[in-house]
Design a protein around this nucleic acid. Structure first.
Lengths: 229, 229
DNA sequence: GCGATGCTTCGGTTACGATCGAAGTATGAA
DNA sequence: TTCATACTTCGATCGTAACCGAAGCATCGC
C-alpha cells in the first residue's frame, strides 16, 4: 500500500463546504476577488484568505494580482474538469445543496460551465449538432465533421484558428442538471462566445445563468432544432 | 449561490486518508472485506466499519454480504472513474503518497486499473492499437475500427458480445504513472481478461501489479509493437 | 447447544482544522 | 503624508469527526 497518488489531499481540499462553494462559484469562469469569494463561502475575509492559500498550494486555483485586488480563477482546464466531474457524480447520487425542485429555472435552462454553454440549451445544442451531422459521436468521444466545419463558418466561428490551440476542439462534459452530455472544449467556448457577441444572450451578474433575449432565443432555437423522430 | 450539486460531501468522504486508502485499494477491482480494508487504511475494524458505512451512504461503495463476510467494491464504473480522475489530477500536481522515485517498478510497468490494464504496458497497448489502425483516436474519444474488430477476433476477443452491454466499448483513462491515456471500457476489460486467461500474466496477491510471465511478456510485446518513426 | 470469527454499535477521548478578532503589510487615493 | 481599501498573519477558541476499547449481533463450524 501507500503507492500511487494521494487523493486524500485534494479530497480534503474540496471537502470543506466553504471551499467547495468557492470552487463552484469559480466554475462560472469569472475571476473573483478574495472578498467576493469570502461572500460566496459565507465566511470572513481572514478565513477565506487561508482557504484560498490552501487551494492554491493544492494546485486547484491560480491567482493574479491586479492593483490591490487579488483575482482567483480555477488553475486550469484540468482543475475545472475535476470540479465538473465531481458535480456530475454528486448530482447523480442526489447530493444537492438545496431542496430539490425547480428552484432556479433559469439556471437549468442555460448557464455557463467554466467557459461553455450548459443546461437544457447546452444539451440541445449538442444533440442538434450531432443529428445534423456536424459532430460525430464516435466511440466515447466527439469529433467535428467537414460539414460541421463549413456550417460553423456560416455562423461566424473560425474553426481553423481554434485548431492551432493545444486544447481539444470538442470535449463532452456531463451536465449535472440534465444528466446528459453537452459540448465543451475550445469549440464549445467559441460557440458561447459568439452567442454573447451577437447579443443573443448575456451573462447574469450574480449567478451562472445565461440570459437569452427574446430574439436570441428565437435564433438559437432555429439554429439548433430538435430531432423530431 | 447554494445552487447545484454538493461537491463538499463527496470531497469530504474522499478527503480522509483512511477512506482514501480504502478507495484506492478498491480501484484494484477486487472485492475486499471490511477487515482487509481496515488493514489498508491502517485503522481498527471498528473505525473501518463506520468509514465504510459512510462511503456506502455516499454512493461510492457497494457491499455484498456473503456468509459472515461483507465484501466491498466501488459502487459502479462512475465511482471508479471519479477516483481514477482524482488520481490523475493528484499525480499531475505531484501529490504522491510516497517519496518519488522508482519505488514500485512492477506497478509502473503493469497494473490493474479497476478492471483493465494500466501502467507502461497499458499505454503501450493503446498506442500500438492506434498506430496499427485498430482504434481510431478521433476527436477526444476512442473508437474501434472494422480492422480492429477482425484483428481482435484473431486474439480471441469477441467484440460482438461486448457491444450488447450498455457499457461503452472504448474509453480512454488517464494513467497516473505515465501521464498518458490507456484503454478502458469493456474492450479494455476484455483484453486484460484474455491475457490472464491465456496465462500470459497473473494478478499479484497483495498489490495492484499485473505480473507477466517471460513467455507472456514476449507475446505481449510482439502483439503490440511500438511505432518506430 | 458452544465457541470462534466477522462485523456493528456505543461511549468517551483526543486532535485537527475551521473560524474569527486583532494586528500587520501592501497598494492606491487624496 | 495620511487615510482607506484589500488582503495576510497571528493567536486563541471551539466543534466536529476520527479513533479505539468494550460490548452487542450475526453467522459459521462443531
Amino acid at each position: 500500500m501507500k503507492e500511487g497518488p494521494d487523493i486524500a489531499q485534494i479530497g480534503a481540499l474540496i471537502g470543506d463546504p466553504a471551499r467547495a462553494n468557492m470552487l463552484a462559484a469559480l466554475t462560472g469562469g469569472r475571476a473573483l476577488t478574495a472578498t467576493e469569494l469570502a461572500g460566496v463561502g459565507g465566511i470572513t475575509l481572514q478565513t477565506a484568505s487561508t482557504h484560498l492559500a490552501k487551494l492554491e498550494a493544492g494546485g486547484l486555483l491560480a491567482q493574479r494580482k491586479q492593483g490591490r485586488h487579488r483575482y482567483f480563477t480555477l488553475a486550469d482546464e484540468a482543475a475545472a474538469r475535476l470540479i465538473e466531474s465531481m458535480m456530475g457524480f454528486a448530482a447523480g447520487r442526489g447530493h444537492l445543496r438545496h431542496r430539490p425542485g425547480p428552484k432556479e429555472p433559469a439556471l437549468r435552462k442555460a448557464r455557463i460551465c467554466y467557459d461553455h454553454l450548459a443546461g437544457d440549451y447546452g444539451v440541445r445544442m449538442l444533440d442538434s449538432l450531432i443529428s445534423s451531422g456536424s459532430i460525430d459521436a464516435v466511440g466515447d468521444g466527439l469529433a467535428l465533421t467537414e460539414k460541421g466545419e463549413s456550417d460553423l463558418k456560416c455562423i461566424g466561428v473560425d474553426v481553423g484558428a481554434l485548431r492551432s490551440s493545444r486544447r481539444p476542439l470538442c470535449r463532452s462534459c456531463l451536465d449535472w442538471s440534465e444528466r446528459r452530455a453537452h459540448l465543451a472544449g475550445s469549440l464549445g467556448k467559441a460557440l458561447l462566445a459568439s452567442f454573447l457577441d451577437k447579443g443573443w444572450a448575456r451573462r447574469a451578474t450574480e449567478s451562472r445563468s445565461i440570459l437569452f433575449s427574446p430574439e436570441g432565443d428565437r435564433q438559437f432555437l432555429k439554429l439548433f432544432p430538435l430531432e423530431t423522430n
